[in-house]
């Protein structure tokens, strides 16, 4: 199986990565190599094996007490933002 130019464009769009026309074939080639590498997984016999999403087995989620521990730090947190106005983060118009 091999990824086409169109596939790369679709993936880049899903990931919201702007690629130049020149970059597309470069990524197509390297992604195809990676896909070939991970294709080795096909050979593993995994029938009945439960997927492992955490490296430590048996641990469970701790529950936090329902307490408000944060105060307003907007001014500090917005220092890293490129564009703010009246406390709002600005983006080009969202069309619904």
């Amino acid at each position: 199986m091999s990824l086409s130019r169109r596939d790369i464009e679709n993936i880049a769009h899903l990931a919201r990565l702007g690629l130049s026309d020149a970059e597309v074939p470069v990524y197509a080639e390297s992604l195809n190599r990676i896909i070939a590498l991970v294709g080795e997984l096909d050979h593993a016999a995994t029938e009945g094996v439960l997927p492992m999403s955490h490296p430590l087995p048996g641990l469970t989620q701790r529950l936090r007490a329902d307490e408000v521990t944060e105060s307003d730090q907007r001014e500090l947190y917005q220092r890293n933002a490129a564009q703010v106005m009246a406390g709002l983060y600005l983006v080009p118009k969202v069309i619904e």
Partner: peptide, 24 residues
Amino acid sequence: ATRSKIFSGSATAFGAAPNAQANL
């Protein structure tokens, strides 16, 4: 109707100034 958010200790009260209840 919790006091704090599902994954952080920010308040959930309605009507605060924009982003005043948005923590890290």
